[in-house]
Write a protein that binds this DNA or RNA. Structure first.
Lengths: 335, 335
DNA sequence: ACTGTTTCTGAAAACGGTTTCATAGTGTCT
DNA sequence: AGACACTATGAAACCGTTTTCAGAAACAGT
């Protein structure tokens, strides 16, 4: 059932039928009614591909995330999906399994079927990104590249707060568990290092680790091989892995070692002890990114409007506590 | 840059260019080479909408899940995405936030842009489903409806095992925390009831609960208002919520109350104590569903091939243990 | 009654591919 | 050398909308 059959049945031209569906006010109400009934009787529904072809836009948006089952990605995706739908767009989701090659392929495939693309923590090289942005409007989340609008999470301050917090609890040797290469470690790392030197904390780094539970497990043993009393993990999933493994090895959290995560996904409240973590406003970031993307799509050139930053905040829960006074083991009767 | 410009530059007809991209072996290698270089120089990429229109298929599949951030959905989606990509399809994902109306709308919107649709635990009414299946090939996961191929999770046996397990541990009063209405509670419930009566366990039910952590929290207090010593929760997220709340109220798991979940998502291994849970092979289910869907799409009419069932299995971890001998409080010196 | 606006509708040309059908060219077999 | 089968290509129709452009109809103003 095409537009023509509807037209025939309603005794009008195809053009009129098209208008009924795209700019109803432009057609006389009587005619409109006739067309509508004809359409309903024929159970006509417009053909999106034909429409896309003719108008030059698809009405779809796309998002590429590193890992669909990662809880931060999920949070973002959910917010994005909701916002996209609210604006009348459907959402394509592609996961790359953290494989850069897949990510590029997915992105390119999607690029041609959508009006705009949101890339979350993309790992692909700069030139690939620019090439992509050449094909379709692109907004990035968590990566900065000249000429491509982006939403960034500014965690410098929040990371400082985390170190400050640990320092106040008496920790003097802290290690940062870095996320995967190409992920937004830099700001956190800078915040971490700066804060360490500012507070006189001995800061070290381990990694990179994949942003997953299993890698947290692995990380824990590496941590225990050092003599730090606190760790700051790239994300909650790693942090939870660390906590688990430490528990298995009989190390108390926060009794012996304190752990800080990032993201404040629901996970943080689910585990024991509840995770002290840097909250990243994923939903806000996702929603904002979509708004930027739609501005782009609609031609309002926000391209050079400086990248938006959303900032994190430290949420203190139970996985951080006073440092065990390791350097002074005699002192049995602490306050 | 359309196919015609490539054709002009390569000195061939548009038809030939099209063939180069769709059935390369049908064109002489010399010609093919010429076309390829021309295409590259022009940075030509085929226009999916045009192609969809002409061929009558889109090369896309769609999946509608109740909640993108639900860990079981995420597992399924991930597997589905991978399998779809492997078969050369891109995947549309839509979340319905568990709102039936949104689900219907999403599904219908998607239906026209994809070659096939996978519905995960759909909550929409039968006639809506049938109408949808009339428009596009549909496979359902976790719901059975005559005429629509489906992949079902048969958890009857696994649920029985859960009850058997609890019974063996000495539990005599167990409650089932039901998931949301319209979700696949029935088989589990049947398995639960049958097993209870078989083993002489007093089985009760609470709910429905949304399949989320928060509802688990809520459920815990309801559980404590009864005198059961064990609960079987609709999914891991609810189970974790229960465990958390119980801990907050000073109830030991499994010391005082044992908890069993469903799904065996990664969550189960992340929490303390690790969750005894019924593993549902989400990846297998998702992959299988996609294969069925593709069979459908390609016209091999598997429509009436009986719905496929994947079965669960009980994974015993640490959230279940011997029942506290409540009815006999004198007995202080238990073995 | 005549011109000037509006409002509504239709004809036809895109949009960018795919595919059928016919034709030219090449090679094979007797 | 002639008949026959392939193979490689091109011309043109088609997929289902949208949109421009122009004309018809209705209406207003003088």
């Amino acid at each position: 059932m095409s537009i023509r059959e509807v037209a025939a049945r309603a005794g009008v031209s195809p053009a009129t039928v098209s208008r009924v569906f795209t700019q109803p006010q432009a057609v006389a109400s009587e005619t409109r009614r006739r067309v509508m009934t004809a359409a309903e009787e024929l159970r006509y529904a417009p053909h999106p591909a034909a429409s896309s072809l003719a108008r030059g836009r698809t009405g779809n948006l796309g998002i590429v995330v590193p890992d669909i089952s990662n809880s931060f990605s999920a949070l973002v995706t959910k917010a994005v999906d909701r916002q996209a739908r609210r604006d009348g767009y459907a959402l394509f989701v592609a996961g790359s399994d953290e494989v850069v090659h897949d990510e590029e392929a997915s992105a390119r495939a999607l690029a041609q079927q959508v009006d705009g693309l949101l890339l979350v923590s993309p790992g692909m090289p700069n030139d690939a990104l620019l090439a992509l942005a050449d094909v379709t409007p692109v907004v990035m989340l968590n990566r900065l590249l000249d000429g491509i609008p982006a939403v960034l999470t500014n965690l410098y301050e929040a990371t400082s707060h985390a170190v400050e917090h640990l320092h106040a609890l008496g920790h003097r040797a802290v290690t940062y568990l870095a996320g995967p290469d190409g992920y937004p470690n830099d700001v956190r790392l800078r915040g971490f290092r700066d804060a360490c030197s500012r507070f006189g904390v001995e800061g070290s780094e381990l990694g990179p680790f994949a942003a997953r539970f299993q890698d947290g497990i692995r990380a824990a043993d590496l941590v225990l091989a050092t003599s730090v009393t606190a760790v700051v993990a790239y994300n909650d999933e790693i942090a939870v892995g660390v906590v688990n493994r430490l528990a298995d090895r009989g190390i108390a959290v926060p009794g012996d070692i304190s752990v800080v995560g990032f993201d404040d996904t629901q996970l943080a409240e689910m585990v024991t002890p509840r995770l002290t973590t840097v909250r990243i406003p994923a939903a806000v970031a996702g929603t904002t990114a979509i708004e930027m993307l739609l501005d782009l799509v609609r031609g309002r050139d926000v391209g050079l409007r400086s990248p938006l930053e959303v900032s994190g905040e430290l949420v203190v829960r139970s996985s951080t506590g006073p440092a065990r006074s390791l350097p002074d083991p005699d002192q049995e009767s602490a306050p």
